[in-house]
């Protein structure tokens, strides 16, 4: 998009890393959003002309004022918007590794197995911790206890929850604290080993301490997963993300390295937003 101009303003080490890693190797692009329009009700588009690339192993933050369409875009990526009967992409396509995910041949169920999602409000199922984490595997028909045990342990460890709950895997997931519940949800999501994890304001319902833990968790998780996170909290975006995309009124205003967006945004609107003039 604006790669050419941004290069100059970036600090040297950043520019060297990113340019060398990105520019030549398009295969690194995991999600390709190509000129997408989206509407919930026919005629009123809530996303317009969105084009962006999300690369493997990066944390991409979507920021912007409420109602700007960032959550909508997130839900487009794993086709959660399919649940709303009239909602549809009206233009463009979203490709995940060169497969158009709105191709009729694509099964949203299969898609969602590869593109996990963590929601704003933590909501473990009213089942045991173990069952919560094993849920995704069970629905894929995995019944063997050793495999499940192993996956549950690995996922809980990934989510940094293992030490806290390993003695009470059979107790209800609802008995945990808020932050723990959200980490349980993350464990549940990563248990099926998705390639991409979408996070829709994962910390907005949590206290600062839990937020810190989750943020640390996100930076660890990006080793294994490509993460897209919607957040309201700009500090959080700077803390966890590699790239940041700023949305305003359904349009992608600017997307670039996080450091660049927050230090020297190229667009005026972005600057207004991050400097707190509105939003």
């Amino acid at each position: 998009m604006s790669d050419q101009e941004s290069e100059e303003t970036l600090s040297p080490e950043h520019s060297s890393v990113t340019t060398s890693a990105q520019q030549p190797d398009t295969a690194d692009i995991v999600i390709e959003v190509d000129d997408v329009n989206f509407s919930y009700v026919k005629g009123t588009e809530v996303l317009r002309d969105i084009t962006m690339d999300i690369r493997k192993g990066e944390v991409t933050a979507l920021i912007g004022p409420s109602g700007c369409g960032k959550s909508t875009l997130l839900r487009c990526i794993n086709r959660m918007n399919d649940l709303i009967p009239t909602a549809a992409i009206t233009k463009g396509e979203i490709r995940i590794l060169d497969t158009d995910i709105y191709d009729p041949k694509v099964d949203p169920i299969e898609l969602r197995k590869h593109v996990g999602m963590v929601f704003q409000k933590y909501n473990p199922f009213p089942q045991s911790i173990y069952e919560n984490v094993a849920f995704g595997l069970r629905i894929q028909g995995i019944k063997k206890k050793p495999i499940l045990d192993e996956a549950v342990e690995r996922s809980l460890k990934l989510a940094g929850l293992w030490e806290e709950v390993k003695d009470r895997l059979d107790s209800s997931g609802l008995g945990l604290s808020g932050g723990q519940q959200q980490r349980l949800c993350i464990a549940r999501t990563v248990a099926v080993e998705p390639k991409i994890v979408l996070m829709d304001e994962p910390c907005s319902a949590l206290d600062p301490i839990s937020t810190t833990i989750i943020e640390e968790l996100i930076t660890q998780l990006k080793e294994e997963f490509t993460i897209v996170i919607v957040t309201h909290n700009m500090q959080q975006a700077t803390r966890v993300s590699d790239k940041t995309a700023y949305f305003y009124l359904g349009e992608l205003i600017e997307m670039d390295e996080t450091i660049k967006i927050f230090n020297s945004p190229s667009r005026k609107e972005t600057e207004d937003y991050i400097s707190g003039r509105f939003g």
Partner: peptide
């Protein structure tokens, strides 16, 4: 392999089975 850009569409993991 899971995200390989396969020429053979049947092997694409996202396609309906």
């Amino acid at each position: 392999p899971p995200f390989a850009d396969t020429a053979d569409a049947a092997e694409n993991p996202l396609y309906a089975k």
